[in-house]
Design a binder for these strands. Structure first.
Lengths: 226, 226
DNA sequence: GTCTATAGTTGGATAGAC
DNA sequence: GTCTATCCAACTATAGAC
């Protein structure tokens, strides 16, 4: 057997660790592998190797591989939701709804474009979950989180320009989400960033037609806390 | 070794077959497995078993598993493109562009809704191809075919109602494709057909605002902001 | 040219050591 | 409670028979 770097660092002796901490470490290892090489590359063996622990440790922490992948999916959802929340903190300001929406949508896109591997990974997790009986519910949770983030973003954009949506926010958020999803997937396939941005910009224009801007002056948002 | 049904049918003797025909048979077997259980379930062994041939036959017909999956991807693209072409043959008729678009889009959707397994499979193939160096180009070809089908459908819908698009058809088709892709993926996850149709109907309304009808001015949802 | 039999690798899971 | 050593099932690929 060859020693991993972590084990060598610990003097050749594997450190014992409470199971909760170990699980987090293993999920982290799984994430780094999956983002770089896809879910297919996430094997129990490679996760153990990456984390610097013996093979069986993974099976001690997770009942089976599916449970590990479920934990990985949760981790990703939290990740993206958190990032989206950060993006929602800085929506476009000013009286022009169309401009505010463009800033919001393209801001979200900037985040997506920086994390191509993770984005591709979310699609992989979705399809994998839909094919795996033990992972029922993962895809639903993914969309529930994204939907909430989209609603928050659209709500803030409208608020910033004093506009009000003429249709249920949930419907508009769902449509925006679908569009961004489709644009992202195609971008992953053809790598055409400018085309993707143009499509998103066009969609922002459509969204702007779904709100009414009253004559009273827009309410300006408070600046985000430091 | 256990005999497969096909081998028993042939009297226990495996029939010899020209390689081209064999390849088609194997791709067919791979498709039936993939549509039902996902790409993950497509192994060289199972394809051979499903086709009723020995394991090595697959490796005789295809250099390696990637080549088999590439052939499978091509088969799927042809399949869907052909189906889309059939759908495009019956676009909505009449002077109302919005209605024609709704018929066209919901017609395409009816096709999608009937083939959930195949639809999920296309997303799996896309992500799989994007992660597999040997399958570079598969995802691009997938989108090229879909794009062409979408352009054809939108072109016919406009033609049927005597309208003309005010923006490049390629751009509109790409946007429609992205939207349908996103809606489909979410539908696969949550199974909410009515919600999906409502989103598509809404998008048809947006598309209708992107064309001009010669006899009458294009219908605008709202007055543009000053 | 077509197919069979077999090799060699990698995977998920577990019994039991510490 | 935490981890090690081991098992065996399933996979891809090939050498060579017919």
């Amino acid at each position: 057997m060859t020693w991993t770097l972590v084990q060598l660092w610990n003097g050749g002796v594997t450190t014992r660790m409470p199971v909760a901490e170990r699980r987090a470490q293993l999920v982290e290892a799984a994430l780094s592998i999956a983002a770089a090489e896809g879910v297919r590359a996430v094997t129990v063996r490679r996760v153990a190797e990456r984390a610097g622990v013996a093979l069986g440790v993974v099976h001690y922490c997770f009942a089976d591989k599916d449970e590990l992948l479920g934990a990985l999916a949760t981790r990703i959802v939290d990740d993206l939701t958190g990032a989206a929340a950060d993006a929602a903190l800085e929506p476009g300001d000013g009286p022009d709804l169309r401009a505010a929406l463009e800033v919001a949508v393209l801001g979200a896109w900037a985040l997506i474009e920086k994390t191509a591997g993770e984005q591709l990974l979310t699609y992989e997790i979705t399809t994998h979950a839909l094919r795996t009986p033990g992972l029922r519910g993962v895809a639903e949770r993914q969309y529930a989180a994204s939907q909430a983030a989209a609603e928050r973003l659209l709500g803030l954009a409208a608020e910033a320009s004093g506009a009000s949506w003429q249709r249920p926010l949930a419907d508009l958020a769902a449509e925006a989400l679908a569009f961004v999803d489709g644009v992202t997937l195609r971008w992953l396939a053809d790598g055409d960033g400018p085309a993707a941005r143009a499509r998103l910009s066009s969609f922002a224009g459509y969204l702007a037609t779904q709100a009414a801007v009253p004559d009273r002056p827009p309410r300006r948002r408070r600046k985000a806390a430091p």
